[in-house]
């Protein structure tokens, strides 16, 4: 899947890094922080968020529904992933993550050498409040610090609000002739 994907030539601007505390548009205090996908408690916090996720907000089959399938999915993607969560009053309200496009542990040790797939999910009660933008920016800032250079994602082509959000942080549309719009950003 790496083949042929075109990344912007110029790196995107600089991004803020977690931890940080921001106010969302509803005036709620939102803490942005990293979590460790290798830590069982941190993964459990993600499972708790995703079992509460509204299935109508799913995209391209993820997150899966039902606690067992959510847990399987998190156990698959989280350990090698890079994660930033938005926390409100101790509760995970949103999650932005990068997953390596490689199964090779040595390749993952060199983040600049491989590409990373991005996904972001925000619980319904916290949508439309600017949290997605904060999550994306802090995830990209954190990833840049870890040496990640190339990030891509797919989004349903008709999902204009999501495409607009990705473009606002510097993603550019790249080649696709299918239901999914592929987008890419260069961090360095």
């Amino acid at each position: 899947m790496t083949d042929g994907r075109l990344y912007p030539e110029e790196p995107a601007g600089s991004f803020p890094t977690p931890p940080a505390t921001v106010a969302d548009r509803e005036g709620r205090s939102i803490e942005l922080r990293t979590i460790d996908g290798g830590d069982a408690d941190d993964r459990e916090a993600l499972v708790e968020m995703y079992v509460r996720f509204d299935p109508t907000d799913r995209a391209q089959g993820i997150p899966p529904t039902g606690e067992d399938r959510v847990r399987d999915w998190i156990e698959t993607i989280a350990p090698e992933g890079i994660h930033v969560v938005a926390v409100h009053e101790g509760e995970v309200a949103g999650h932005a993550t990068l997953v390596p496009e490689s199964d090779d542990p040595e390749a993952i040790e060199e983040p600049a050498g491989i590409t990373w797939e991005l996904a972001i999910f925000v619980l319904a009660a916290y949508q439309q409040a600017g949290i997605g933008t904060h999550l994306l920016e802090h995830l990209l800032g954190h990833a840049e610090g870890l040496g990640v250079e190339r990030v891509w994602l797919t989004v349903e082509r008709w999902n204009a609000p999501a495409i607009g959000l990705y473009e606002s942080v510097g993603f550019e549309r790249c080649g696709t002739e299918s239901f999914e719009q592929e987008m890419a950003i260069r961090l360095a």
Partner: peptide, 15 residues
């Protein structure tokens, strides 16, 4: 096919 994230991707033939 599934992306590394587990997203389902339909290609141009399927579409």
């Amino acid at each position: 096919t599934e992306s590394p994230m587990g997203k389902i991707r339909l290609g141009p033939i399927a579409e």
